[in-house]
Amino acid sequence: MSTAMQPETAARPDEPRNPPVAESRSLSTWLERHRSGLLGFAGIVVVLVIWQVSTGTGLADPSFSSNPLRIAKAEADLFRTGEIYPYLKASGLEMLWGLLIIIIAGIPIGLIRGRSRVLHDLTEPWVNILYSTPYVIVIPILIFWSGIGNTSRIVVIVWAGILPLVINVTTGVRNLDRDYIRVATVFCTPRLTFLRSVALPATLPYILAGVRLAIGRALVGAIVAELFLGNNGLGYYVQNSTTNSNIDGAMAGVVIIAVVALLLNWGVRLIERRFTHWAEAQ
């Protein structure tokens, strides 16, 4: 008895195999990769929805708390009329000069301080005192010394931001791998060459973490300085809007400050992922 063979159906070369499975895996991979960002975005949306519903149902008075829709309208008006641009420019220039001074001075100070035990012990009490002392308390002294101009505001920004960077870089240098130090010692590496070619690359994760902390504290310092010392800038705009009972405009200014902070931190995180991925693998 012969058994009939069932012919196998050949798959067409242009016919995709299991497309739903491939798409599902691709989607799950994308969701897993962006899980943190999506959850953060969802958290922001939930808070905004609760805020809007609270003002819409009368649980909160929008005259005192505003709401997301009114803030969005105020944001659009600020950028449409150009009213916010001078304040953004003033704060941006102060932050630019302050961060340049912080980075240019803070990294070398941290490297040298981390390599010299004598210098570290001599400066440790002063670093702790200056880091623990609120910089707001010296603002009256700065006004007495240099008035309420840009110089005083930049001094406050530098004071607020440079110490976290110095402390982080110092910690990174003091925790260097002993093998690096032994190899440099064997080859009689000059001190400056060691700092530039060994200590600086090895402490890059500490440096970028310090830069992130410095940016946050410097932005706070800039806003505080504008509240007390300025007649321009985002901090002054928020204070002036609150004084004039323009709560929507004040909250719009706060949102702009928050967005600037997020963008700055996002930029530093991108640099960390690009240049310090080797540290995560260790």
Rank of each mutant, 00 (worst) to 15 (best):
P108I: 01
V118D: 06
T133P: 02
Y131P: 05
L122I: 09
N128R: 13
R115Q: 10
R113L: 14
I112V: 12
L122T: 04
G106Q: 01
I109W: 06
I107G: 00
Y131R: 11
I129A: 13
L111W: 00
R113K: 07
T123Q: 05
G110P: 02
P125G: 05
W126R: 07
V118S: 05
P134D: 05
I109D: 03
E124W: 03
S132G: 13
V138E: 00
L122F: 03
L119A: 10
V138I: 15
V136I: 15
H120G: 13
V118Y: 09
I112C: 08
H120E: 15
L130S: 11
P108V: 01
W126N: 14
G114K: 00
I137S: 10
H120A: 10
L111R: 02
E124R: 12
R113M: 14
V118I: 08
P125E: 07
E124T: 13
V118W: 03
N128K: 11
L122P: 04
I109L: 07
P134T: 03
G106E: 01
I109C: 05
S132W: 03
N128D: 10
P125S: 05
S116I: 01
S116T: 06
P108N: 01
T133H: 03
P125F: 02
L111I: 01
T133Q: 03
D121V: 12
Y131A: 12
Y135D: 02
R113C: 14
R115T: 10
L119I: 05
L119F: 08
S132C: 09
W126G: 09
D121G: 06
G106N: 03
V138T: 12
H120F: 14
D121I: 11
R115Y: 09
G110R: 03
T133C: 02
H120Y: 15
L122A: 09
V138A: 10
R115S: 11
P108S: 00
G114Y: 08
P125Y: 03
I129L: 13
W126H: 14
I109V: 02
L130M: 12
Y131F: 12
N128Q: 14
R113P: 04
I107C: 02
I129D: 04
G114H: 05
T133W: 08
T123G: 02
W126S: 14
R113N: 15
R117I: 13
G106P: 09
V118G: 10
V138M: 12
I129M: 12
R113A: 14
R117H: 11
L122Y: 06
Y135N: 01
S132R: 09
S132M: 09
I129H: 04
R113T: 15
I107L: 00
G110H: 00
V118L: 09
S132L: 10
E124K: 07
Y131T: 11
D121P: 11
V136G: 13
L119H: 06
I107Y: 04
I129N: 02
P108D: 01
V118N: 05
L130H: 06
Y135E: 00
Y135M: 00
P125M: 06
V136P: 12
L122M: 06
